[in-house]
Each structure stands twice: as structure tokens, then as C-alpha cells.
Design a protein around this nucleic acid. Structure first.
Ligand SMILES: [Zn+2]
Ligand SMILES: [Zn+2]
Ligand SMILES: [Zn+2]
Ligand SMILES: [Zn+2]
Lengths: 176, 176
DNA sequence: AGTATCGACGTTATAGTATAACAGCTCGGC
DNA sequence: GCCGAGCTGTTATACTATAACGTCGATACT
């Protein structure tokens, strides 16, 4: 009667629980099965505030799922990417949840146009959605007779928080 | 007295030889040393018509340089990237020569804005230079209070040649 | 010359990321 | 019951990259 859906829902935070329920509905709609393992891996990804590596996920998954091995987690990750529920951050070889539905953008074509800002200091990664970037890239491709399929657009730098932090450190060292 | 610079120049094609000589001058200007190993690795990269993986380079390097090991080639690759002579194609974990000088664009800031079109079929990769893409990405970053450092912009798809090839195959299967 | 230093390289070992290959299981339709 | 498809278990391995430490030679200062 807790009302959040699957029996293992309580293992994650409330926000994650909601996202998991939505993911379950998405998979239903797609005629694909969000199994326990897949759901669990997705929960681990969503519960993190920064991208998570496959072997980190494996370690965490093993706490509740003794038999897990690399293929276990890579299969789940492949499935979740196919469903558009997570993305891979290439620069970090790590995975983040997709928050597309929060912003209502077109899922069907979304995978091709994922864009990330990645903080070198804290690793926090935000997915942005700038049509101008994708448009400019596609226009350039067209000029080369190139038929686009998937793009990797990632910008590494310092997030606002870490810039502020660095400024504070600078001030402390050289006050006035 | 052959006039092309280093003694090993003859190992590569004429075009590659010219690029190697230019690279030697670039390094001179930078006060850095284009050693035999570095020059050889650069030659191997330049002589390929598609991106080359580090272990492929290692195999080829070993044909003339028995003692080579992974660090040998990775050190050379790091150096060449620092000099702006090659780029890494992240999606392929492979390396291509930079042709910047052919187009006279700004080298100092170029590394941050490298853009590739990568063919999924033949792996051939072309470096493009579309300021609008970098501009749009930087504008988006600014809007998030994000300070950019290095970007990865790669579009995977089908090159014009492979599209034509695919079309021919299609025609053959369904003529008329 | 002596020697401190630095950059490049040799060598061995290991970390980190990802997949191949095959076996077993379950579930639903026939 | 039987089959086929999809999911998982399990072992082994491939591929990419770096750590750590030792050697050597050139440079430069004394
Ligand atoms: Zn997304
Ligand atoms: Zn940060
Ligand atoms: Zn370039
Ligand atoms: Zn092609």
C-alpha cells in the first residue's frame, strides 16, 4: 500500500522511486521488460548525483545481488540506453539518468542529440538541450554529404559551484 | 643532402614526409623535441587514411623498434597531442593527424574545439571546423555559469562514399 | 672535471573498461 | 509436452591506459 509499484521500490529515495515507476510505464508502453536487475541498476544510476561507472554499479549491485558479474551490469546498461532511460557520458565512461520527460522533449530523436556539461572537479554532469548545437552539426554534416546517426557532444569544464569554490580559495590566499 | 630533414624520412610517403618536416619546425618553434620515436609515431598516424589505435601503432612501431611497449606509444601520443599535431577520436579510441595548418585556423585555441565526422562503415574520419557549433555550445555553457575547457564534438554516421555504396547495394537488390 | 637536474626512454606490472561465448532457466504459444 | 525467445549465470578474455621505478644522456652551473 506504499503505492510506489515494485516491491523493491523502498530501496531508493522518493524521487528515484517516482522515476522508477515512470520508467516501468515507459517500458510497458515499449513492450519491453523492466526486470528486477534492470530496475535495480536504473535505481542506482538515478540515485547518484553524478555519473556512475559500470564497475561502481557492479559493486553496489553485488550488495544485494551476489551473482552479479560485468556482463550483468553491462546488459542492464545496454537495455536502459536502448529504452532512453539513461545515457553514457563518454568522457567519463559513466552513466547518468535521462531527465527528458521532465522537460517534455522529443524522446524518439533525443538519443542522437544528447549534450553534456561535465565538471572536471566534482564530476557533476548536466544534460542540456540546445537545438542550435545539433542543428549546426547536422548542417555541417549535410555539407559533407554525411548522414548523421549519433552524436557525442560533451563540454568539460568547471561548474558554477566549483568556479565559486575556486574563487573563494583564491580570495583566501590573496585577500584584498 | 636529400633535403627533407631527418634520416628516417624515406620510410613514409611524400605527403607524410612534408607534414613531418612541418611538424619538426613546429616543435622547434615550441622549444620541444620531436625525437625519433615521436616522429615515427606521427608518421604512422599521418600515413593512415583513418584513425589508428594505440596498439595498432605499437605493432607497427615494433617492426622497426623492438623495445617498444604501451608506454612508449602512449607517451609519444601525449606529446603529439600537446603539440597539436594529432587529435584523439574519442568514439574510436584512435588518433588522427591534425590538418589545421592546411586551413590556417587558430592553433592556440584549436584543441578545445575539435569536431569530427566519423563513418560507422569505413571509419574514415574528417575534422571539421564549424565555429557555429563551438559558439552555440559555449553560449549554452555560459547560461549555466559553466566555464568551458575542452569539448568533444563527434558525429557518427555514414560518409558520402558509404552512402553511395549502400545505395548501389540497394539498387542491386531491388532493381527498377 | 664534478655534479645536480631534467627530460626521454626502457621495463614490468597493473588498473580500468568492455565483450565473447556458452550454458541454463523461464515463460508463453503451439 | 515441446519449442523458441529472451533473460540471466558464469568463465574467460580482449582492449585501452597508466603506475612505478630505473637508466641514460644532455645541459648547465660550480
Ligand atoms: Zn536525455
Ligand atoms: Zn563542479
Ligand atoms: Zn585539428
Ligand atoms: Zn564511409
Amino acid at each position: 500500500m506504499a503505492g510506489t509499484g515494485a516491491m523493491m521500490g523502498a530501496m531508493f529515495g522518493a524521487e528515484t522511486g517516482k522515476l522508477l515507476d515512470r520508467a516501468a510505464r515507459t517500458c510497458d508502453r515499449n513492450g519491453s521488460r523492466l526486470t528486477d536487475i534492470r530496475r535495480h541498476v536504473l535505481g542506482l544510476v538515478l540515485d547518484s548525483d553524478r555519473p556512475v561507472g559500470a564497475y561502481d554499479l557492479l559493486d553496489r549491485l553485488r550488495q544485494s545481488h551476489k551473482g552479479a558479474a560485468p556482463p550483468t551490469v553491462y546488459r542492464a546498461l545496454d537495455f536502459l540506453q536502448e529504452q532512453g532511460l539513461i545515457h553514457k557520458v563518454e568522457r567519463l565512461s559513466a552513466f547518468v539518468g535521462c531527465v527528458q520527460d521532465d522537460r517534455g522533449h522529443d524522446h524518439a530523436h533525443h538519443d542522437h542529440k544528447v549534450q553534456f556539461l561535465i565538471c572536471s572537479v566534482c564530476q557533476r554532469t548536466v544534460e542540456i538541450d540546445e537545438p542550435r548545437i545539433a542543428d549546426a552539426l547536422e548542417a555541417a554534416a549535410a555539407r559533407h554529404g554525411f548522414v548523421p546517426r549519433r552524436s557525442t557532444i560533451e563540454l568539460e569544464g568547471l561548474c558554477a559551484d566549483c568556479v565559486a569554490e575556486a574563487d573563494r580559495a583564491e580570495q583566501a590566499r590573496e585577500p584584498g
